[in-house]
Design a protein around this nucleic acid. Structure first.
Lengths: 340, 340
DNA sequence: AGCTGCAAGGTAAGCGTTTACTCGGTGCGC
DNA sequence: GCGCACCGAGTAAACGCTTACCTTGCAGCT
């Protein structure tokens, strides 16, 4: 690979001059030299070694994000928003997929630290696991101590700034809609039991239940993995245990779609016989049949806000800033009045 | 941030020793020292500076991938396969989204070169644009000249190894199925006109047409953007121009889903009145209603093979290796016999 | 003429690693 | 008892850049 020194040699100038020209430094450089240098750069197809630059420069500029899985539309949307703002600010973003493996999340924090990122954004729900939380917090604190900024999206138990979607309210809206439509016995297809997203959303469902003088019996809650397959399995389990269910509340759209698929395979009409409501409003929610009634979270916006938090230097020293974003019911066709 | 030197100081050894212990160098080190060093690493929460390592080490280990958009399920699948193999081999992968902007692709090649990646994988279709191809090839060649490896997925006009899905055959299968079902006048919802994926798939359709003694009139081909919205628009245009169409061939699933949505909005039954066939077999293809008949490409496998090519050193010097992967018709419910 | 001041470019000291090389100190063969 | 090989640890030279600081030359003063 051609180096700065090669360019300097070819142009007959010092490497400092080349560096200044390439980085558009404020120091003035004679036009003649500039042209010679640019020509040399072109001729050698010179590209500065990013690692050498990062080593030599003091300021860090890239942003690291840890998600469960980019190909999950939920995260894809968050990242879309996040990328937009990052790019607008000339920041590169490195994305890491933990595939819901806590250990891998820990490893990725190290990796991002090793890469000297300016900020680490933890997207995706946290776990109710004190040992993990403690480890993660200690790693994050070390990182913060060296000037690193951290932002979490949708978890409350970590140090640093946070963007918090109102999962509780979303859950409330979801259940409230079901009660309003006259459903009294509905199953819940929840996510992994130890994830905070699951418990928050469930808490919302429970609040709505209480307001209607009811409760969510444990036997009507099945825990899945937030993916389509587990949604199908959960729907099947629910139906087998209690064939008279009039509705299902899925705690994310992927599982809702799985439920829809299972219902279809059993020839159960949605929403005429059983209503289904999802959560997240992923792009394909409106393409399944029937189009999914769901709770919308401003995903792209959440990603964008996370970057903004990461970029703004903290005002005080220890104030941690929290941005809350709302949840909204999107009525489509998969939920209707209770019929049986 | 703690540095190697800090650790060395705390442990009372030289930095060389620390480096050797951390990297598990073959050089033997006394156990007592090893423990002291490891303790110091733990105490300081030391993480080696990745950039300094890359600068100092000679061998490059990360892999760069350029795709159009990770959140597009087509690429998400490719990346999944690619990641798997890369991780198995201890390689990190950096993903760049060009959002179908050729200039951005060029920029990303520079960026990846700047980051000293061991290989660049160009996923996603190429363009029929000689100026662009020439520029890209020159950049790739420069990169190769310095020992970089390049692999392209699904484009033929670039230098380097390649993984080529049989788009032509897929197109052929698609059209053959339509003809077999008795469709004689069907619309084609194609991708961007200058993309090789589009032209390859179209070529397959044309071959099938010829074999059935027919042709694809230009007025029945509408070019979209490979996304849902343009699929809807294209379906509308097709239908408006020729209401008697009995089927539509979409050149990817996203557009097929868009077409399905449009047909539904117009109250046209699929497949009873109009059949629809997609291409790619994205995961959601089986969740839309009716489930999409489509052409399956082994996407994850393609990603995996690309990494394998990138990792295997070229045998000869100039032999460029080409791996071809097949296409397969997946019959589901969106295509049926022609009825009108 | 002798200074000062400034503009334009060069010199060289890092940045944090890795690694070839150097250097005491053992243990061994003779 | 001496030299040698070898082992384990340290020294220091890269790696390719950025940038503080220094040099040079020249215009503008007094």
């Amino acid at each position: 690979m051609a180096t700065l020194a090669d360019v300097a040699r070819l142009a007959g100038v010092s490497s400092a001059t080349v560096s200044r020209i390439i980085n558009g430094s404020p120091k003035p450089v004679a036009d003649a030299l500039r042209e010679r240098v640019l020509a040399a750069v072109e001729e050698l197809q010179y590209v500065p070694n990013a690692h050498a630059q990062l080593l030599a420069r003091s300021h860090r500029s890239t942003i690291g994000v840890i998600v469960h899985d980019v190909s999950d539309p939920y995260f894809a949307e968050i990242i879309r928003g996040l990328q937009r703002v990052a790019t607008e600010n000339g920041r590169l973003v490195i994305t890491c997929n933990s595939y819901r493996n806590p250990d891998r999340e820990l490893e990725y924090v190290e990796l991002l630290r090793a890469h000297q990122v300016a900020a680490i954004i933890l997207a995706g729900s946290g776990y109710h696991d004190d040992a993990f939380t403690a480890k993660m917090n200690s790693k994050l604190r070390v990182y913060q101590a060296t000037g690193g900024r951290t932002v979490v999206i949708g978890r409350h138990d970590h140090v640093g700034d946070a963007v918090l979607p109102d999962n509780e309210k979303g859950g409330y809206l979801l259940a409230a809609e079901l009660y309003t439509l006259g459903h009294r016995r509905f199953g819940v297809i929840a996510g992994p039991e130890q994830m905070t997203t699951t418990t928050d959303r469930l808490a919302g469902l429970r609040r709505a239940a209480r307001e209607h003088g009811r409760r969510l019996p444990a036997r009507r809650i099945v825990y899945g993995d937030f993916d389509r397959t587990s949604g199908m399995a959960a729907a099947a389990a629910l139906l087998d245990a209690e064939p008279k269910l009039t509705a299902m509340a899925a705690l994310n759209d992927s599982m809702a779609i799985g439920a829809l698929a299972l219902l279809r395979s059993r020839g159960i009409a949605v929403p005429d016989e059983v209503s289904v409501i999802g959560f997240d409003d992923m792009p394909i929610a409106s393409d399944v049949t029937p189009a999914l009634t769901t709770i919308r979270l401003p995903l792209a916006d959440m990603g964008a806000r996370a970057v903004i938090l990461a970029l703004q230097p903290a005002e005080g020293d220890d104030v941690l800033r929290i941005v809350r974003v709302g949840a909204e019911l999107i009525r489509r066709e998969s939920a209707g009045p209770a019929r049986r």
